[in-house]
C-alpha cells in the first residue's frame, strides 16, 4: 500500500486540518470533538443542515459546508461513522435557532450514532430532525437487509436541503424537501479496483485483472455480483437501467444526471460514462436537464464510478440551481 499519509491513525485529523487551512474563508475546523462548521453564520432562525459519516468519501461531507448547502459536517474515522459526542457538538454549534436537519446516509452505524447525538442535542434544547438517504438500488430494500445504503444521491439531498434552508424555509419544510429529494434519487455503482483502508493495508476486496464488481457501496463493501470486464457502454447500461427502472422513469420526464467518480478514476473516463448514460436515458424519452460529473462521493482511491439520477420537478430544479458556495460545489 502506498498513500500520501503520515501515521494512518492521524490521517483524518491531518487531512481535515489541511482542508480547514485551505478553505479558511468558508469553514472552521473544531477539534475535541472534531467537526467542520461554516465560518459565516446564517441569519438567526435559519434551519441548520448538518451531515457527516465516515471519512474517505471526500469531498463529501466537509467539502459541502458553506453558503447554500451544509452548516456543519462531521467526519468519523475512515469508513467509520462519527461518534455521538462529535455529531451532537456539531448540531449544537450549527444551530442558529431554527433547529437542525440531519442528513444521514442509511447505515446502521450512522443511524445509531446520529440517533444518540440527536438525544444529546435535544438535552441542550436543540431540535433535530433526521432525513435518511437510501438511494443505492444495488441493495434490495426489504426486511432482509438494513435497507438501502446512502451513496451518490447524498449530494443532491444536501444541496436541496441547504437551498431550502438558505431561502428561509422552516424545519418542517426543509425536512419535507429533503425527504422529497431523497425519494426522487437513485444510484448504482461499479468498482474496477477496490480501495485500501490505510490501517488495513490491503484492498477491501479482491478483484482479478479481468473482473469488475457491480453494485458496490462506498465503504469497500463487496458488491452484489462480479462479472468479467466489459466496455464502458455495457457497464453504464448495468448502472443506468436498474436506476431508471427503480425510479419508474417514463417518457417525457426530466432528470438530473450525476456521474460520480470513486476517487481513483480520472474525469476523462467519467465523461465516457456520462455520454453513455445520457444516451440510455434519451432512448427512454427522458430529458437530462441538469448534470454533474466529477468525484464528489468517493471511496478512498477506489477505481470505478456510480450513476445517480434524480427525478426533477420545478421546485427541485430551482433549489438545485440556487446559489451554492462551498469548497467543492459552487455556483
Amino acid at each position: 500500500m502506498k498513500k500520501l499519509l503520515n501515521d494512518p491513525a492521524q490521517a483524518v485529523d491531518e487531512s481535515v486540518e489541511g482542508f480547514g487551512l485551505a478553505h479558511a474563508d468558508l469553514v472552521e475546523v473544531r477539534t475535541d470533538p472534531l467537526f467542520v462548521v461554516r465560518r459565516q453564520r446564517p441569519p438567526h432562525g435559519t434551519v441548520a443542515v448538518v451531515s457527516g459519516g465516515g471519512a474517505g468519501h471526500e469531498p463529501l461531507h466537509a467539502g459541502f459546508v458553506g453558503e447554500g448547502m451544509l452548516d456543519a459536517a462531521v467526519p468519523g474515522a475512515v469508513f467509520t461513522s462519527p461518534t455521538p459526542d462529535q455529531v451532537g457538538a456539531a448540531f449544537v454549534a450549527a444551530d442558529a435557532g431554527g433547529g437542525v436537519l440531519a442528513i444521514v446516509k442509511n447505515y446502521t452505524g450512522d443511524v445509531l450514532n446520529f440517533e444518540t447525538a440527536a438525544e444529546l442535542a435535544d438535552a441542550e434544547g436543540v431540535t433535530v430532525r433526521t432525513v435518511l438517504v437510501h438511494d443505492d438500488v444495488a441493495v434490495e430494500d426489504s426486511l432482509y437487509t438494513a435497507g438501502r445504503r446512502g451513496v451518490g444521491g447524498t449530494v443532491m439531498v444536501e444541496k436541496i436541503a441547504g437551498a431550502a434552508a438558505a431561502r428561509g424555509d422552516d424545519l418542517d419544510a426543509v425536512a419535507a424537501l429533503a425527504e422529497r429529494a431523497s425519494a426522487a434519487v437513485r444510484s448504482m455503482g461499479v468498482a474496477l479496483h477496490a480501495p485500501t483502508v490505510p490501517h488495513v493495508g490491503r484492498p477491501s476486496f479482491d478483484l482479478a485483472d479481468d473482473e469488475i464488481e457491480i453494485g458496490i457501496g462506498i465503504h469497500g463493501e463487496p458488491g452484489r455480483h462480479r462479472i468479467p470486464m466489459a466496455s464502458a457502454d455495457e457497464i453504464t447500461k448495468m448502472l443506468v437501467e436498474p436506476v431508471a427502472d427503480d425510479l419508474g422513469l417514463a417518457n417525457g420526464e426530466k432528470v438530473l444526471l450525476f456521474v460520480n467518480g470513486m476517487g481513483g478514476t480520472p474525469p476523462s473516463e467519467l465523461y465516457v460514462v456520462y455520454r453513455a448514460a445520457r444516451r440510455l436515458l434519451e432512448e427512454r424519452g427522458v430529458t437530462v436537464e441538469r448534470s454533474l460529473v466529477g468525484s464528489y462521493v468517493t471511496s478512498l482511491e477506489m477505481q470505478g464510478c456510480s450513476v445517480t439520477v434524480m427525478r426533477l420537478d420545478d421546485e427541485l430544479t430551482g433549489l438545485w440551481d440556487a446559489p451554492v458556495h462551498t469548497p467543492a460545489l459552487r455556483w
Binding site: 465516515g54 461513522s81 462519527p82 461518534t83 455521538p84 462529535q86 447505515y107 452505524g109 445509531l112
Partner: peptide, 14 residues
C-alpha cells in the same frame, strides 16, 4: 466506547 468507537459497534457496545 460511545465517544471513541463510532460505526455500528460504538453505540451497540456503548
Amino acid at each position: 466506547l460511545m465517544s471513541t468507537v463510532g460505526g455500528a459497534a460504538g453505540p451497540l457496545y456503548g
